[in-house]
Simulated assay, not measured.
Amino acid sequence: MNAKEIIARRIAKEFNDGDFINLGFGIPNLSAAYTPENVHVILQAENGAMLFGPPPTPAEAKPNSSNSGGMPITMKPGASTFDGLTSFALIRGGHVDQTVLGALEVDQEGNIANWSIPGVLAPGMGGAMDLLVGAKRVIASIQHTDKKGNSKILKKCTLPLSAAHCLDLVITDKAVFGFQDGKFLLKETAPGVSVDDVLAITEGDVVVADDVHEMDI
């Protein structure tokens, strides 16, 4: 199981029956494929789709039905598509129970940077800033380290922020973190990863929960 699949599978465990959930570009969109069978959620894409399911087969894919990353989606019975104004009215109106967004960096203050790297041309943050302040619960998904092994789980973000003090949960390929007293709260570790392993690759300050346990994926 690769890092992206670990994260996507763990994201889906946060889906609660009846939730209205926005999935962002990248790994969050992959989590739709792992929605538990007994959990019924309304998945929303910021580009204007509501009530979609797992990715379709190539034969079932329709060019006019896609998620925020432009990948094909399966529209469920009762699903709808709509314009950007309606989509963002739902987001800004506080109707989103949870949003799951990808990140470049997160820090122990609950800040997230997910749109800009200095010197690299970026199209902008898209709907991230609206989702980060409009959703009732915000989950960041991120690979724990970069290609050089440097931590992306930081004391303080170094990249331009998308929003400040907005995160409720961080899911990486190595761990799941909440927040406590201005520090990361280590709640879960990935299969085969120890608490010491997580601490060794995490720059931010970490409090280890009394009931820390292995991810259920």
Rank of each mutant, 00 (worst) to 15 (best):
S65H: 15
G53F: 10
A49L: 06
S31P: 00
L30I: 09
G18Q: 07
S68K: 11
Q44I: 14
E46P: 03
A61P: 00
N16Y: 14
E37T: 12
H40C: 10
T35D: 03
T74N: 10
K62V: 00
A49T: 11
S66P: 15
D17R: 02
G26C: 09
L30G: 12
S31W: 10
N64G: 05
G53I: 06
T74E: 13
P54S: 11
P56R: 06
A33P: 04
I21R: 05
K62R: 01
M71P: 08
P63L: 13
T35G: 07
A33G: 06
A45L: 07
E60P: 00
N29K: 11
G78F: 00
P63H: 11
S31V: 04
F25E: 13
G48H: 05
N67P: 04
L23W: 03
G69Q: 08
A32M: 12
A45P: 05
H40I: 02
I27T: 13
A61D: 04
E60Y: 00
F20A: 03
K76G: 13
G78H: 01
T35E: 11
N16H: 03
A49F: 14
P58N: 14
V41R: 00
P72H: 03
N64K: 06
N38W: 08
S65K: 08
F20S: 04
G26H: 09
P72K: 04
G69N: 03
L23N: 01
I73Y: 05
G24E: 02
T57V: 07
P72G: 05
P56N: 09
G70P: 01
S66T: 15
P36R: 13
I73V: 11
G24R: 02
K62H: 07
T57Y: 04
I73C: 12
T57F: 10
M71D: 14
P63G: 03
H40V: 02
G26W: 10
A59S: 06
P28T: 08
F20V: 01
G26A: 11
V39S: 07
M50G: 14
T35Y: 14
G24C: 04
P63N: 09
N67T: 13
G53K: 02
N38P: 09
I21D: 05
P55N: 14
N64H: 08
M50L: 12
S66K: 15
E60Q: 05
T35H: 14
I73A: 06
S31F: 04
M71V: 15
M50N: 13
P56Y: 07
N16M: 12
A45E: 06
P36Y: 14
G70T: 03
A59G: 09
F52P: 08
E46F: 08
A45V: 01
P54H: 10
S31R: 02
S66D: 11
D19S: 12
A59T: 10
G18L: 06
M50C: 13
I42F: 13
F52D: 09
S31G: 07
S68F: 14
E37W: 04
L23I: 02
D19Q: 10
L30M: 14
P28D: 02
A61K: 07
P77M: 03
D19P: 08
E37C: 09
L23Q: 05
S68H: 04
M75Y: 08
Y34I: 06
S31Y: 11
S68E: 13
M71Y: 10
